[in-house]
Amino acid sequence: MIAAKNDSWLALVPAGAKFAVLLLVSIGLYLVGHWQPLAVALLVSIALLLSAKVALRQLLWPLVSLLVIVGIIWVLLGIQTGWEQGAVAALRLLTLCIFAYTVSLSTTFDQMLELFQKVASPLKYLGANPAQISLGLALAVRFIPELKRVYLEVREAQFARGLHNNPLAVAVPLVIRSLRIAEETAEALDARGYDSTTTP
């Protein structure tokens, strides 16, 4: 759910502003108790989503699963407490999610990370190092495919040994290899002159 190449007007709005608006909208939606204004809000959110020129293909599956959930909620609440209240909850959820997706899809991953680092920067008064935060995020992104590969490798090895239904046989080597990866990577960081005490 990342903005691929987005050149809409929304992509030019700073990520922080979009987040702030999203937060206000989410609070606002919970203050509304009738379905009519919520239906209007839903139309606004859809209009915004379309104006952001996002690749709708990217949204297909999230939207389908969201609609299923919303449908279930509506039916559930409709039977239990009345159809109107069900509609309010369903509309609210749908609207909020579409707003959130719109923000996500019009903001690049880098912009998001930058925003997080800004948000986290007051932590430096508590002894945290902003440079370490950005390194940590970059490293995590770097190691997700690596860890997935390790996981599949370990699972394959245990399958080969006939340990099909033994989650321990997968989890123990996975954790140990993760620790080893961390050790070696920390060494590599040190060897390349990374100094966790200085800020860039």
Binding site: G136, R142, T185
Partner: peptide
């Protein structure tokens, strides 16, 4: 400190 950062990221 570096090792802690890496452990956090790897987990």
């Amino acid at each position: 400190a570096t090792k802690d950062t890496v452990l956090v990221a790897v987990f």
